[in-house]
Design a protein around this nucleic acid. Structure first.
Lengths: 247, 247
DNA sequence: TGACGAATACTCGATTCAGAGTATTTGATA
DNA sequence: TATCAAATACTCTGAATCGAGTATTCGTCA
């Protein structure tokens, strides 16, 4: 059998819940929300039903019975199969033992930061910093609540603690970044400022070739040189005609 | 016009590149890889072409001309429109200023940790820890290289520095977690161990009601009580018949 | 000079997903 | 007792995504 996709951790969460006992789809959703798993795993109805179908098609879960309450739509109750149990252990083990590249929106935004003028960037990062501080305070209050009021053991809050630690790192990083930009305490800021002030909206390729930041990167990173796309000096020496008809 | 989806940061990256100058799709891909943006933004061919189509349909970019080199497939060169420029600034500003929930595979895995026996969890986390340490060492070497050999300003490596900081946090967290589990230095570990040893693969609902962790959570978090799905005491009091025909 | 691998430049189809929409029931309120 | 909001339990559709596949050309090395 071709390897399953494993791209959506919701499928893994479902396997875990079905390991506890049999459940119908709506019960899965309700339980996940109840346990606040939707804060660490993307969850919505459409996904649940299609993921359940896929798991069933792959033989990892199976319908064990159908229930009906009055006139409501019948509910199909699912249980874990043997190979489902195997997949659960293997998948979860891989996720835990092997770091993989994680893509986040904020990292993406940081990598595009030079596309905004430095002053704007600082203002926006300040707004973010304030929001993070608020969130950190809420985290503390929430932990207080879970620990004291609910008596919820730390074991069941591991992911919340981890996210809290990440958030603190984010706060420190953003604060330091703001400082560095403001005090021009970072290589490249002169260029950044200059190019936005002089009306070129983008730094790298506006540089004369000899100082071209990206050019140097291109040269060093690639074994061979040449006038190729991706090389920022690329200007298309091929035949060019105006585009006549749009699609 | 209905608000654009903004779920795929690749579209934002493309807007940023087109702000620099006009490019054709393959040039976009090559440039993104060249600048190592594919390490912070998920990138593959299929996505690029469909994202470009979408951006064009939304009027954020437009085809400016078509080039052809000998017998190769013609290349359509795109440029940024005025509303594209607006969207770029607005989208990037939002990403920077407003924290949003970020879903990662590792956080998902942590939230499902109790589904494995504690001893297994510790072993897997140790493997991860070693991999993170290796990665951290590579980060240092890579930074050395970029800074010294390439003279690449820190401004263009912000995202790499941020990921490095996150990785250090992850290392510390994982190391501490291993310790806590091993020294049973965490509330809930007794139960966790017990339930895996006694053959119940899952802790929460195996508890007697009076000590039920999730039950208490359910009670406290929800305003009302009752025998409903998602409540872990739920056992389906409705009519039940065996499932006759599978689909 | 001819063969082969790497790079160029996409195309296509099969999943996968998000989220809006639908219909029923329960419980609180007026 | 009628009504209305909230909760229950999905269904459907169109969009987004992924990755494999295709076809051409260039450079290099025997």
């Amino acid at each position: 059998m071709a390897r399953r996709s494993r791209s959506n951790p919701l499928a893994l969460a479902i396997l875990c819940l079905l390991q506890e006992r049999e459940r119908h789809p709506y019960d899965l959703v309700a339980t996940l929300k109840n346990r606040h798993k939707h804060e660490s795993i993307r969850l919505n109805y459409g996904s649940v039903y299609s993921v359940v179908d896929r798991l069933e098609a792959d033989g990892l879960i199976e319908a064990v019975r159908s229930e009906q309450d009055g006139n409501r739509p019948p509910r199909t109750v699912y249980g874990l199969t043997e190979s489902g149990k195997d997949e659960l252990v293997d998948w979860l083990s891989t996720l835990l033992s092997t770091p993989r590249r994680e893509y986040t929106h904020f990292t993406a935004a940081l990598s595009l930061l030079p596309s905004l003028p430095p002053a704007d960037a600082v203002a926006l990062l300040r707004t973010r910093l304030a929001a993070i501080e608020r969130q950190l305070a809420e985290d503390d209050a929430g932990e207080e609540f879970a620990g004291r009021e609910l008596g919820l053991p730390r074991l069941f809050l591991i992911e919340a603690h981890y996210e809290h630690a990440l958030r603190r790192t984010e706060r420190d990083f953003v604060a330091a970044l703001i400082d560095d930009i403001e005090h021009k305490d970072m290589e490249g800021i002169g260029l950044w400022t200059h190019f936005h002030e002089s009306g070129f909206s983008v730094p790298p390729n506006a540089l004369p070739p000899t100082n071209g930041v990206w050019r140097e990167l291109d040269e060093s990173v690639r074994e061979r040189t040449g006038n190729r796309p991706g090389d920022d000096r690329f200007r298309g020496a091929s035949s060019t005609q105006p585009l006549a008809t749009p699609t």
